[in-house]
Design a binder for these strands. Structure first.
Lengths: 285, 285
DNA sequence: CTAATAGTGTCTGTTAGACACTATCTA
DNA sequence: TAGATAGTGTCTAACAGACACTATTAG
């Protein structure tokens, strides 16, 4: 039985008359916060823009969503355009930024995705069409001051050669939300395009928060790895050293033994793999 | 100093030549998951669509984002269009759904917001232009089976008269993500439009997860309330009874005393208010 | 030998679940 | 009086932080 609306139209008739060209529409993009760990340091991929707007500023890789393309398809396409990353890379939606004035070209609504991959998966990183350069930056976020309703953190992005970006992040607890302000620090010699610092900050919050209680960090590790490798990645995420005994005691709950051993700096260390049963803890927003 | 791109253009010149009309653009909407608690039950506002597509189906209130309007402005506008809700209503972004085929009219990318308000704030709920009806549904999500890598829940939406919607939600833990499937149950006599069940399910997950560890539930309570009122709201969210002694012991950490007392069913009970210092725990995604 | 890393054991204070209990008011 | 709700106290097992410890290998 075909349903009919108040004008007596069937769905097919309604769609035939539907016209969305009367209104101007925003552009939609996906941006990727792509992380890996190399040399025991957490890294973020940034590109240097070669055109307006935000010319010569560092930005998250990303691009427009095509009209008939799912958002996840757009993310996968961008991932393979920017790097030679395989299809199995982990990514998850983080947040959608859509302030009316966030891009001077037109209204741009961007959905940011957090993506992670082990070092071994990154074959080469090419600078895409819109980029002058693409670089992996060491990223860290550290709390410098914490009071009852305020917290101050320093988020740094450093290429360990010439580029150093540093933001002071102030969080203030209001009645039912947390207000976050990000200020470019004086010792920075470059800056991030648009509102990208907001997404990067949210990604760091999420990662640091979930590192201990979920298996999220295993997306930065090879399938089989030693406890020491795990602890190195964990410490790269949270930004400080942690107790080895406690770390091992707690992480074991998430692991399966492989029976294999690998030689790591002299001694033979046991290899473990993540027990996917623990993916469960991650599910919740 | 004015920056110049490879074509020798300043930003102003670049923008003057920028034209986004060559590509067809998606439409962008905001949808609201608006909850309250009445009669010790968690409620969700749904509207019955009066036109194609999804005609006569129950849907989340929402609408198109105007070209020059911030997303949060669109949410506030929709909130006041659907209800007489004041400006102080809590809302937070949940997720953006943008599958290419999710709406038969055109490509529609929708960002869902979870919004909560105490019962007292809802003066009247009007059916908007696009709606035949607007109703508050009792919502609950309960786990019915839980194994190592699988979980089955039942999510019900019931108007306690004639409409009963029921979905079976299957979660399966994969290597690094959780796959969720939602199936309309046989005992349902109505259904939700488009993919709205997905957002509602995510909202319930988030609420249930954060109810114990954050102050999120205080958005459903008047500023000053008794411990019993809090426990009622908490139980409405998680869907089952909880131990009164333990609940009181734990919730006290988040409260400030007011010194006032209110008469609740005979006895005088102390009134408390939420200590916003605890907003902090909520911040993290 | 020392330095570095793999890996273990233990003590302690805090927390979460279970449950038993008293007090006060209404019907 | 019974029944409901306000509000408290206690026992226990699990957990998290701090820290001391052994074992093996490279240089």
């Amino acid at each position: 039985m075909e349903e009919i609306n108040e004008k007596g139209q069937t769905l097919a008739q309604f769609l035939a008359n539907y016209d969305d060209s009367k209104y101007r529409h925003p552009s939609n993009t996906v941006d990727m916060i792509l992380m890996t760990v190399t040399d025991k340091k957490l890294k973020l991929l940034l590109i240097k823009r070669k055109d307006h707007p935000f010319i010569h500023q560092w930005a998250l890789p990303g691009g427009f969503i095509e009209f008939s393309e799912d958002m996840e398809e757009a993310v996968r396409r961008e991932l393979s355009e920017e790097t030679n990353i395989t299809d199995h890379t982990y990514f998850r939606q983080l947040y959608t930024f859509g302030n009316a004035d966030r891009d001077p070209r037109t209204r741009v609504i961007t959905t940011m995705y957090l993506s992670m991959t082990p070092e071994e998966n990154i074959k080469n990183t090419k600078a895409a069409d819109d980029a002058q350069d693409a670089k992996w930056f060491t990223i860290s976020k550290k709390v410098v001051e914490s009071a009852e309703q305020n917290r101050t953190c320093i988020l740094t992005l450093d290429d360990e050669k010439e580029v150093h970006m540093e933001y002071v992040i102030h969080d203030t607890a209001k009645h039912n939300y947390v207000e976050t302000r990000s200020i470019l620090s004086d010792n920075a010699n470059a800056k991030l395009a648009a509102d990208h610092i907001k997404g990067i900050n949210m990604a760091m919050d999420m990662l640091q928060n979930r590192a201990a209680s979920t298996g999220i960090m295993f997306n930065l590790l090879p399938e089989e790895c030693t406890l020491r490798q795990m602890q190195d990645v964990y410490e790269a995420i949270i930004g400080h050293k942690t107790d080895t005994g406690n770390f091992r005691r707690d992480i074991r709950k998430m692991l399966k033994e492989t029976g294999k051993k690998a030689k790591v700096s002299g001694k033979y260390a046991a290899l473990y793999r993540f027990n996917p049963m623990y993916t469960y803890l991650e599910e919740n927003l």
